[in-house]
């Protein structure tokens, strides 16, 4: 009884406090004499279950922000708080665990390991999480069924089309049930039809599992079809944002639904 109350209050909290919060986030690179301000004072808040897009021209610092949120990179200054945890406070071992369990990542170039089959790629995060083999196999099979790749699970990535590879990458990103999905131009290497297919899947996960999604993209049109909020960057700074009215109404319902889903899962 007590347990249940605790879970409910936790998920309520996750709905009200932002899932991702960055404050005056900076990442500078020293290149000889010049200082490159790849990320220059970004303060950003993404609520739990929200689906946002980061837009901007090439070199504006979108990927850098995403890597900082993912804990792959450490900021020069400023802070990143995800699901109530300040990444600066975490040890390297804890950061690895955070990447393993709290966030999932998808990349433009899929980044599947070429020497492994699709099934092995998908179950790899569970190896790091020390999930036992039997459970790993069934979960990997299940995840590949979600993305419609059960027939291709014993193929190597090179034998799959770009869209199929990205679906496998999605399955891998979601296998440890992260609360946050970070996608860096997930449709960048795909034709528009396949891109839409991937986006539909991401939206489904966002709505059905209440997963927070931050997606970097160049394609404004595609973003407007799916995301609730568009954030614009230039030269490492935020230069504006737009609430997407077309999806905002749907998203409120989806968010509530997502909370329910999360409650059911936990």
């Amino acid at each position: 009884m007590q347990n249940q109350t605790a879970t409910i209050s936790a998920s309520l909290q996750s709905a009200t406090t932002p899932a991702i919060l960055t404050e005056n986030l900076c990442r500078y690179y020293q290149m000889g004499q010049t200082l490159i301000r790849a990320v220059d004072g970004i303060s950003l808040s993404v609520s739990g279950g929200e689906f946002v897009a980061l837009l901007g021209s090439s070199g504006s610092g979108k990927s850098s922000v995403l890597n900082l949120i993912a804990g792959l990179d450490r900021p020069t200054s400023g802070s990143v708080v995800v699901q109530g945890r300040d990444l600066a406070q975490l040890s390297r071992e804890e950061i690895a665990k955070y990447r393993l369990r709290t966030v999932g990542m998808v990349f433009q170039s899929f980044n599947l390991i070429p020497s492994m089959t699709i099934a092995e790629n998908v179950e790899l995060p569970m190896r790091f999480a020390e999930v036992e083999r039997g459970k790993r196999d069934s979960l990997a099979r299940e995840a590949l069924t979600w993305v419609g790749l059960q027939a291709r699970m014993n193929h190597r990535p090179s034998e799959l089309s770009g869209g199929e590879q990205q679906r496998a990458a999605l399955a891998r990103a979601l296998i440890n049930r992260p609360q946050v999905l970070l996608a860096d131009e997930p449709t960048g290497n795909l034709d528009s039809h396949t891109g839409i297919e991937i986006m539909n899947m991401v939206r489904d996960f966002n709505q059905q599992l209440g997963m927070t999604v931050v997606m970097v993209t160049h394609e404004r049109a595609l973003a407007e079809r799916y995301v609730q909020r568009l954030i614009f960057m230039a030269d490492g700074k935020l230069i504006g944002e737009e609430i997407n009215s077309a999806t905002a109404a749907a998203s409120v319902a989806a968010m509530n639904e997502g909370c329910d889903a999360q409650r059911r899962m936990s």
């Binding site: 390297r92 071992e93 690895a96 665990k97 393993l100 980044n111 790091f128």
Partner: peptide, 16 residues
């Protein structure tokens, strides 16, 4: 290099 980067990105620790 890339493979190591991928493994780290999906949650491998330095120890792993």
């Amino acid at each position: 290099r890339r493979e190591i980067g991928i493994m780290k990105a999906i949650g491998a620790s330095e120890r792993d």
